[in-house]
Amino acid sequence: MLSTAVSIAFLLVGAAFVMALLRLLYGPDQPDRILALDTLYVNTVALLVLLGIHLGSALYFEAALLIAMMGFVGTVALCKYLLRGDIIE
């Protein structure tokens, strides 16, 4: 039963990846693309946690934590770039 649930969950998270990728491709503005990238990071965390349950290994947790951190830093840096524009400090 658990493995069925995990399989369905894999499908749903995979579909979520496709949605975020569509937004990343179609865009129309830069903030939309940054938001799509941010969503992809969060979805990756979800996928890694699922993989950890599926394989019964706690090893993937560290990767999930790192991706969550790097994703946040990346989003903040890109937003700061948009806010500051081409103004050089």
Binding site: M1, A5, F10, L12, V13, A16, M19, L35
Partner: peptide
């Protein structure tokens, strides 16, 4: 196992709905 399966399905469903909103809604 039932509780675990329910939590996993609920989590995946919410992840999916969030991304669906990203693809579907009309302005940023």
């Amino acid at each position: 196992e039932v509780i675990l399966s329910a939590l996993i399905l609920l989590g995946a469903l919410f992840t999916f709905i969030g991304s669906l909103g990203l693809a579907r809604l009309e302005d940023f």
